[in-house]
Write a protein that binds this DNA or RNA. Structure first.
Length: 504
RNA sequence: GAUUUCGUAGCUCAGCUGGUAGAGCAAUACACUUUUAAUGUAUGGGUCAUGGGUUCGAAUCCCAUCGAAAUCACCA
């Protein structure tokens, strides 16, 4: 297959051939022993002590500026950038000046990965640098890297085209340090959560992604097919029903970072695959879960920012526990003036009409409440707020409220006007659960294409007895957006889904 | 899915009401052994997203297609 090459690509391939002709392997096999990183040197070098006199370091050339018989280059390793001073007499002490005159001056490019050995010193202009004594090419780059320059905090020629950045995330990561920082934060966030759960005795588990009956959420699944069994499978939309089976099985606290798949639109807050942390704790209820959740959120904010005040857009969000708790009907009353708590479906439909909210016949009472809340209330909860006590119609897997008829023991955690987590006192009454599933079937018959299927094995599990349990799902990508101050989910996913590109 | 905007050199962009493509960085060559967005001089680099149409003439106007972004709808 022939490939169209740009001028610069052709030149680099020619350089590769020249290197080969000089007997230099552009992709050598031997390990290159690294004994320090850029950051270690920059933070710890002491010019009086003359430490770091035998460093061995590797990285990617980010700039290279020949100045006659000396060349300045900057290499980037995982921890940052450091300047190299490559003097002809340092790397070519003998008669043969080929390495400098040919390789350094003509055959090395921005983007190449090299390993160097040498001593650290400070240049006249005060920049801690490495005087290179040995230089080894470790990998030749055949494509030119975008060259981003920064001066006085101002960035020039930023590699900023979002399509290119997402499709070629590797380039984005090389060239944009703040992108790298976002993903490091995301990783640290997940680590903090995992540590927090493990400290409290939770067990991390794995449950099926391929499911016969996609359950645990209201969403349209991806369908696939298993050839050997000749049966349809669905990619999971949630792992809830499997984790509850494990609670039945006798594990009292299980969690999973669940990659979920939903066959819906893509926009700046939706990717077809996304990550939800779900965990279930036996013998707890949703009040316990609210307490635990706010502690966890506070811990995450502290781990990532060193404070509970987190900047998000032009706002500061305080993750300081405790968070406000607002019953959903109170929220609706506050933002619409209507008390819908005692209304029937027809009255509620009239309220929707007055509020200019579109409804259709597939919507039951619970769905109408959800619509009103979504349209008029949700966006107002900027600071972390638990919205509690949802209508039973909306929550087929949730235990009925201990004292409020028609409601369930459920909360959603709203932050910056978006739902971040959803939790319940789990429904463990198998008779009630069967009735709720049957309600879902009726909704499906009314045309709700997101109503849940009956999962008979899950009912069977409940019939063996599940302890009272509280469970939660936390949108990890959404939380990462908040914690890294990014408005697009694509910014916190390494490889967001996009339409396939045309072949080059 | 709808609407709007965008797609020009490796990257970032300019190119007014149509006259046949330009800058900075990057690249190539030369000079320079402590530079800092290095500098100086010279040079090369483009099926202007793709395919049609209008026109004497299209990067520019029109249509379609592909890709992206924003807003909306649905959802987490």
């Amino acid at each position: 297959m022939s490939q169209h090459l740009s001028e610069q690509e052709t030149i680099r391939r020619d350089k590769l051939n020249q290197l080969t002709a000089l007997g230099i392997d552009a992709y050598p096999a031997p390990a290159f022993d690294v004994n320090c990183h850029s950051k270690q040197i920059l933070e710890n070098y002491n010019d009086a002590e003359k430490n770091f006199q035998q460093v061995s370091i590797a990285g990617r050339i980010m700039s290279i500026a020949p100045k006659g018989k000396a060349t300045f280059a900057k290499i980037q390793d995982e921890h940052g950038r450091i300047q190299l001073y490559i003097g002809i007499d340092n790397i070519c002490p003998g008669e043969d000046k080929t390495l400098y005159e040919k390789v350094v001056l003509h055959l090395l490019d921005i983007g190449d990965i090299i390993g160097v050995k040498g001593e650290v010193f400070v240049t006249k202009t005060g920049e801690t640098s490495i005087r290179v004594k040995e230089l080894t090419l470790l990998s030749k780059a055949l494509r030119p890297l975008p060259v981003v320059k920064v001066k006085d905090g101002e960035t020039f020629d930023a590699f900023a085209d979002v399509e290119l950045r997402y499709r070629q995330r590797y380039v984005d990561l090389i060239v944009n340090p703040e992108v790298r920082a976002t993903f490091m934060k995301r990783s640290k966030m997940i680590q903090t959560i995992r540590d927090f759960l493990n400290e409290h005795g939770a067990m991390e588990v794995d449950t099926p992604v391929l499911q016969n009956i996609p359950g645990g959420a209201a969403a349209r699944p991806f369908a696939t097919h298993h050839n050997a069994l000749d049966v349809p499978f669905y990619l999971r939309i949630a792992n809830e029903l499997y984790l509850k089976r494990l609670i039945v099985g006798g594990f009292d606290w299980v969690y999973e970072f669940s990659r979920n798949f939903r066959n819906e639109g893509i926009d700046r807050t939706h990717n077809p695959e996304f990550t939800v942390l779900e965990f279930y704790v036996a013998y707890k209820d949703y009040f316990w879960m609210m307490n635990y959740t706010e502690q966890m959120m506070e811990k995450i904010a502290l781990a990532l920012h060193g404070t509970t005040d987190v900047p998000v857009g032009d706002k500061i969000i305080s993750f300081k526990a405790p968070f406000k708790r607002v019953p959903i009907y109170d929220a609706i009353r506050e933002f619409t003036g209507f008390d819908v708590s005692e209304m029937d479906e027809a009255q509620m439909r009239e309220v929707c009409r007055q509020l200019h909210i579109e409804t259709d016949n597939s919507m039951g009472k619970g769905k109408l409440v959800d619509e009103i809340f979504g349209a008029k209330c949700e966006g107002n909860f900027i600071q972390p707020t638990f919205i509690i006590d949802y209508p039973v119609e909306l929550s087929p897997l949730t235990k009925k409220h201990r004292s409020k008829p028609g409601l369930v023991e459920r909360f959603e955690l709203m932050i910056n006007g978006k739902e971040i987590a959803n939790a319940y006192s789990e429904l463990n009454d198998p008779i009630d659960q069967r009735a709720r599933f049957e309600e879902q079937v009726k909704l499906m018959e009314r045309g709700d294409d997101e109503a849940m299927f009956i999962d008979h094995d899950f009912l069977r599990a409940l019939e063996y007895g599940m302890p009272p349990t509280s469970g939660i799902g936390i949108g990890i990508d959404r939380l990462a957006m908040l914690m890294t101050n990014n408005a697009a989910i694509q910014e916190v996913l390494f490889f967001p889904q996009m339409r396939p590109e045309k072949p080059e």
